[in-house]
Design a protein around this nucleic acid. Sequence first.
DNA 1: ATTGGCAGTCTCCATCGGGGAGTGCTAATC
DNA 2: GATTAGCACTCCCCGATGGAGACTGCCAAT
Lengths: 346, 346
Amino acid sequence: MLEPSPLDERKQQILKAVVSDYTVTGVPVGSQVLAAKYFIALSSATIRNELADLVGTGYLQQPHTSAGRIPTDRGYRYFVDFLMETEAATPGVRRTVRQEFESAPRSVDGILEKAAMVLAQVTENVSLVTAPEISEQRIKHIDLVSLEPQSALIILVLEGNLIKQQVVHLDRATSQDDLSRMAAMLNRKVKGQTAEELADRLAQLGPDRGEQRRIIERVIESITTHQAQRQTVVLHDGVRNLLRHPEFVEVSRLEELLELLEQGAQLASILQQVAFEKDVEIIIGRENTSSGLRECSLVLTTYKMADRVRGTIGVIGPTRMHYGQVVARVRLVSQATSEVLAHFGN
Amino acid sequence: MLEPSPLDERKQQILKAVVSDYTVTGVPVGSQVLAAKYFIALSSATIRNELADLVGTGYLQQPHTSAGRIPTDRGYRYFVDFLMETEAATPGVRRTVRQEFESAPRSVDGILEKAAMVLAQVTENVSLVTAPEISEQRIKHIDLVSLEPQSALIILVLEGNLIKQQVVHLDRATSQDDLSRMAAMLNRKVKGQTAEELADRLAQLGPDRGEQRRIIERVIESITTHQAQRQTVVLHDGVRNLLRHPEFVEVSRLEELLELLEQGAQLASILQQVAFEKDVEIIIGRENTSSGLRECSLVLTTYKMADRVRGTIGVIGPTRMHYGQVVARVRLVSQATSEVLAHFGN
DNA sequence: ATTGGCAGTCTCCATCGGGGAGTGCTAATC
DNA sequence: GATTAGCACTCCCCGATGGAGACTGCCAAT
């Protein structure tokens, strides 16, 4: 762990070879294997010297004295930043993705579920998908349905055909006919507005207009709570894939991870921090703040919806994963999701 | 496996003791332990004779020659049918359940998710909840929202405030005003009807009335596909609980089970067969048709909603589970769910 | 029918030791 | 100065070994 010195060409190649070999075999990589498979021009002794240096600078580690080397988190970081070659997704994978999306139900939720499913399938890891943020989502339609004499259901259709419902209590008994009239009036007023704009107008309106005001308040509340709630909802799929990875024979790791997945809130806050500017963001091992993710990596990117609403999509797997392939496939599924959503979303 | 002879009183008590002890300790139960803990009046030799009989008739088995006995599936079956005492849920558990439901969102889906969560928590197993069947669900309200000139969104509010959406393509461009008028008319016609009744009326109506007919067809389709789709959707929660059970250190079992849970269809068909008449239904080990459930038991019951719509709720866990306790808690959560849904559902 | 006694069986676990893989170091070589 | 061959050394892995312990089944006595 001395200096983060820029590695010379040969050390880079050796680091790359170690990562590549280790991600495939899962076995610590020794100097002889490296010499035989990747560096025929060099002797194993030379490679041993280089390996020792890489251990010294913190890019590699030894599980025990007489074992081969495996990458540290730092080694993986260097690999993904400078050495990794992303592999274009194979035609087979592309076909799978396309077919799955074709059979997806035509609703935002359905498409996202499908995205989670297919991403888990093609990366053989656990997939993560956040629901889209809808803060700037515009109201498309509003409707009021009588439940009991003094309560009604607000139905809100947002852009992207997201539907929200909310129960509102009424001051006095109101018939469905009256509610329908009120809905028609509201439609003229609120159509095309965002929650923020609506809140502004409400503030200007002053304190009168009891019933209608209450309903608009509920509409705003509905959108914002929807938003807050959505931010904690993370779809996932493919837990079964993890069991195939030898790093999870230790059941306690799996348990921590499952707890994260099933509660969701902590994961959601991680996923929200994914930058929209970047292409694909990779978080490796202990770079994660969650202790349950100590030995996991996340490969995340974002998807678009109607060019405005956005969410995060990606996978979580063992640090020892085939980054080049996973990155390509996450990107592929993200693009496919965005396309389907764009086509459907307004 | 000779005759299914009715066991005499003492054999019953011994079987009961073996099941009870084994479900707690997880260790095969020997004759000495039984004599010391449950049958002080008898010697271990006597118990050995009885145990040998119980093995002969297929209620118990020995993992190996010089080990204690564990129940067979048949032994568990006899236990739950004749010997089990259901334990009333403790005040602590009742409080947990009540509190969780109080904080549940006021929607059918939200309540069912909550039910799955709390059931997993109090039984320390995986919970299963099917969405309610809505075949006889009556239509409460219908609305049409213009998407593009020639397509519209049908919004359907069913009893229980279940909302369904469906996109319909229109023959000619139609304004939102026209759609609203059409919706108002439809509301008068279809309100309070079930999908079946609607289909009947449509058949009588004859082949004319193009646009409106198309929309009603879509409404029916929407309800029925919703139904079909819902039947394959099974909520579950608490997979992390399974990892605490020693029977799942063998990861392959877990993998089969996860596959069942994540795909859902097969489980759904099992859950649909749960009889509504019975109180609680228990399916033990190999009584399951799914091979992935060979070593699991299901404890299932149903919940009601608005006294008519019904779904299945229960848990899945290792055959070695504390049946008396689990049955009581499944029943408790089912009742609580029914209550919340009854209160909310119309 | 029940029981004490006892030999026999099988698991579990700790210990031991050889084989093997890989290293670090040193001295020789290019 | 970088590279390499050689070698002693370390450590894991794995199978063999051998009690200790837990139970059983059976037999003869009660």
